[in-house]
């Protein structure tokens, strides 16, 4: 914890904030704003998943399901019961957190592959429920006509406004996560990852902490899901599949463990990759289709190459560069 590094971190954060905040003033391309809103939504989920996987060392292959739980809860409450938006989003977040808690209690006694399998199973079960609970979820047809975010009579209905809302939440999520990892609970998470015996001997209730982090992480996924539902207006089960869970894990793995900056950059890059066909002007139709077909494979390949050649992910690059400048012990 040097004196220079926090300043660098602050400057980086401020610079990123300015760039992100200026986008709506630079473009009014609805599609582009929508894509960048998705980037922000994924970033919110990744903030939570980085805490769980990158800092506490617990894997979840079920975060798409928490995302979906938040989305369906908020969508259902606003469409079927006309619950105010803010309350509905809070309910979606809370239900996802509760789901996380209930999943974590039995499964966090499992380790490594077994925890991965348990959370993967959870995602599959939820996927089936999203289809089968037709009364609430609309089955395979999904739910449509989900209202825009609104507080009282103030409606957030332009792509630019929704973009700002989502990125404001993302900024809060990252600031909160960055604060957390530098104080008592966050240090305990990192300790747990390093040596469970050591953490226990330091008085950390390891089981309780894992459950807490899992719930927080699920809550952020649920929050992002709820925001997603209201920004696109339509949701269906295929959006919350295992494939999305794996993409989220890939973002944290490529971004690197013990880091928030790395996973953030990876979330931006891997989300944009999905829309690269639409983002590059003048790209031929065939090339666009080719990229679209191979997008999942490219993400997978990036993850495999990361694990093999840079196990520390993007964060390892960031740290190496910083410690070269004489600043050790930094969280990138």
């Amino acid at each position: 914890m040097g004196t220079v590094a926090p300043r660098i971190r602050f400057v980086l954060f401020a610079a990123a904030s300015v760039v992100i905040a200026s986008v709506p003033f630079l473009t009014d391309d609805r599609y582009l704003l929508k894509i960048l809103t998705f980037v922000g939504l994924n970033a919110i989920v990744v903030a939570g998943l980085a805490l769980l996987l990158g800092f506490a060392g617990q894997i979840s292959m079920g975060h798409a399901a928490f995302f979906g739980l938040g989305a369906y809860t908020s969508a259902y409450l606003t469409t079927a019961h006309e619950v105010p938006w803010l309350l509905a989003v809070a309910a979606g977040t809370l239900l996802a957190a509760t789901g996380g808690l209930l999943l974590a209690l039995p499964s966090l006694r499992l380790k490594g592959h077994y925890l991965a399998m348990a959370t993967l199973g959870f995602n599959e079960i939820m996927s089936v429920l999203f289809v089968e609970m037709r009364g609430i979820t609309g089955g395979n047809d999904g739910l449509s006509g989900i209202p825009f975010p609104s507080i009282g009579s103030f409606v957030i209905d332009s792509p630019a406004a929704i973009y700002i809302l989502v990125w404001a939440v993302a900024a809060l999520a990252f600031v909160g996560a960055a604060n957390l990892v530098r104080t008592r609970p966050g240090r305990a998470m990192r300790a747990l990852h390093g040596s469970e015996l050591g953490a226990l001997a330091s008085g950390v209730n390891t089981v309780g902490l894992k459950v807490q982090v899992f719930a927080v992480s699920a809550a952020l996924a649920g929050l992002a899901g709820a925001l997603y539902a209201h920004s696109v207006g339509f949701i269906s089960p295929s959006q919350f599949s295992l494939e999305f869970s794996i993409l989220l894990v890939a973002m944290v793995v490529v971004g690197g463990t013990g880091s928030l900056t790395g996973p953030f950059i990876a979330a931006v890059a891997l989300t944009l990759l999905q829309y690269v066909h639409a983002l590059i002007p003048g790209l031929s139709k065939d090339a666009a289709a080719l990229i679209q077909d191979w997008e999942v494979d490219i993400s997978g390949l990036i993850m495999i190459l990361t694990v093999i050649f840079v196990p520390g992910g993007l964060a390892a690059f960031l740290k190496r560069r910083r410690s070269g400048a004489g600043e050790e012990g930094e969280i990138a």
């Binding site: 914890m1 240090r187 990192r190 013990g258």
Partner: peptide, 8 residues
């Protein structure tokens, strides 16, 4: 020793 290797 059960230290947290990644921590200072």
């Amino acid at each position: 020793t059960q230290l947290f290797e990644e921590l200072t």
